[in-house]
Amino acid sequence: MSADNPAFSAITVAGFALWACSWALESTADMQKLRFATVSATTGVKRSCDVGLWKYSRHPNYFFQWMQWTAVALMCLPELVDHFGRTNPYSAALLALGLVGCSLTMYWCLVSYTGAIPAEYYSVQKRPDYRDYQARTNMFFPGPVRRQSHTTR
């Protein structure tokens, strides 16, 4: 959708679908973590959450939150392209930089500033199995579980 064309473009629809899926997956990760924490508190065992989406990423909630912000930037692309034809290129380039900057800033924030890295600092101290969890599970981007090599001495 743009000012000159009120119909939704395929990119806008794809961006909205990405946003909706990411929202659902972030919510799922949060619920899985809450369920795990409730069971852990009941049993008194402090271990790392490695169930559901947490098996594939140590911070799936942060990853899918970042994907939501990236989806919003994607939804803005048709209007940005339309803007390139209506204004000077410097203004449009600044807007494009702002869209990319929004996604990159959220990534930095969710990984380094308020999110994954600070959380991991405390998790290593509180959970004895967290280093093992770090060795087999990607920090931010979901991926396959890595096998650990156990060597005997």
Rank of each mutant, 00 (worst) to 15 (best):
Ala3Trp: 12
Thr12Arg: 14
Ala14Val: 07
Gly15Gln: 01
Phe16Arg: 04
Ala20Trp: 13
Trp23Ile: 04
Ala24Lys: 14
Glu26Asp: 09
Ser27Ile: 02
Met31Cys: 05
Gln32Cys: 00
Lys33Trp: 09
Leu34Ser: 11
Leu34Arg: 14
Phe36Ala: 00
Thr38Arg: 07
Val39Tyr: 14
Ser40Lys: 15
Ala41Arg: 14
Thr42Ser: 06
Thr42Ile: 03
Thr43Phe: 11
Gly44Asn: 12
Val45Arg: 02
Cys49Gln: 11
Gly52Arg: 07
Lys55Ala: 09
Arg58Ser: 00
Pro60Asn: 14
Cys76Asp: 07
Leu80Lys: 14
Asn88Met: 06
Pro89Gly: 15
Ser91Ala: 06
Ser91Met: 14
Ala92Trp: 12
Ala92Arg: 14
Ala93Asp: 08
Ala96Trp: 03
Val100Thr: 04
Cys102Ala: 10
Leu104His: 08
Met106Thr: 07
Met106His: 10
Tyr107Met: 02
Tyr107Ile: 00
Tyr107Asn: 02
Trp108His: 04
Trp108Lys: 04
Val111Pro: 05
Ser112Arg: 13
Thr114Ile: 00
Thr114Asp: 01
Ser123Tyr: 09
Ser123Gln: 12
Lys126Glu: 03
Arg127Thr: 02
Tyr130Cys: 07
Arg136Asp: 04
Thr137Ala: 09
Phe140Asp: 14
Pro144Ala: 08
Val145Gly: 07
Arg146Glu: 05
Arg146Asn: 06
Thr151Val: 09
Thr151Ile: 11
Thr151Gln: 15
Thr152Cys: 11
Arg153Val: 04
